[in-house]
Design a protein around this nucleic acid. Structure first.
Lengths: 138, 138
DNA sequence: TTAAATGCAAAGAGTTTGCACATGG
DNA sequence: CCATGTGCAAACTCTTTGCATTTAA
């Protein structure tokens, strides 16, 4: 049983064959697939899965905090298993590859910045866009 | 002549009536309108403007760094005049209103974080989502 | 059993594009 | 004048939804 599936069970979600497969795909994913990619991988395991079901399922999973939805600005949502710890993303603009990182100082400053503006911080999005250091020597 | 129009002229862009109006709308905007909203405001000044032209125009303007495109996660692009200084956004999730802010410390830490991961930072996106402090007392 | 999940195809929202016509430099 | 911009409508991408059918609990 995949980690995502276990989380679903803990949340009391009805686990259908399709949901199990989608959960597995997301648990196995090392990247941040979009709905279409999740569907394609799911179909490799079990062809009885439609894109509509993927969309409905990821929404339910997201609402149950079993996975996280990201928007990297390319017009489609991407998904990843809810990690135990929060992290942000650095996107290598040469390859499109996404690297996860966490920085406590930045997190703290964000909270502070929001407070100074009169807000209680309930969420944030931080994405860094970079090029590999070797390549950037100009 | 609006500020955006002047920037366009400096870039050598051909200034048609429509582009002038769109430039004006964006110069006058105190918020971050989407393409549809830009079009509606433009039509108030001159009805001879179509949504397709707005899309084509904002793309040209963006490519010429005359305005900036933002994606606040609600599925449509939003635009604002390219300011002299960089800033990030705090979104009031109760009203949807966007507040601009700038924080040098966070900027510096971002650069550092990227460097530690082996990247040269060429861009970033930071959005804070918050609720007004008065309302958040629970 | 039965409320909830699924597949399909159609509908939406936002954005882009092909083509004939209009226009700025 | 003529390369470029525009309007219109159709196309495209991503996502959602209505409805008849299937399925988990």
């Amino acid at each position: 049983m995949s980690r995502v599936e276990r989380l679903c069970v803990e949340k009391g979600l009805k686990m259908t064959g399709q949901r199990r497969v989608i959960a597995r795909v997301l648990s196995d994913a090392k990247d941040h697939p979009d709905a279409n990619e999740v569907c394609r991988r799911a179909i490799l395991i079990d062809p009885h899965i439609s894109l509509a079901t993927v969309y409905r399922t990821v929404r339910v999973f997201e609402q149950n905090e079993v996975l996280e939805r990201h928007d990297f600005g390319d017009g489609r949502a991407r998904y990843e298993e809810s990690g135990s710890q929060h992290h942000d993303h650095l996107i290598n603009i040469e390859t499109g590859r996404v690297i996860e990182f966490h920085n406590d100082q930045i997190e703290a400053l964000q909270k502070l910045a929001a407070k100074e503006l009169g807000f209680h911080l309930v969420g944030h999005r931080l994405e860094l866009y970079g090029i590999p250091l070797e390549t950037s020597e100009d």
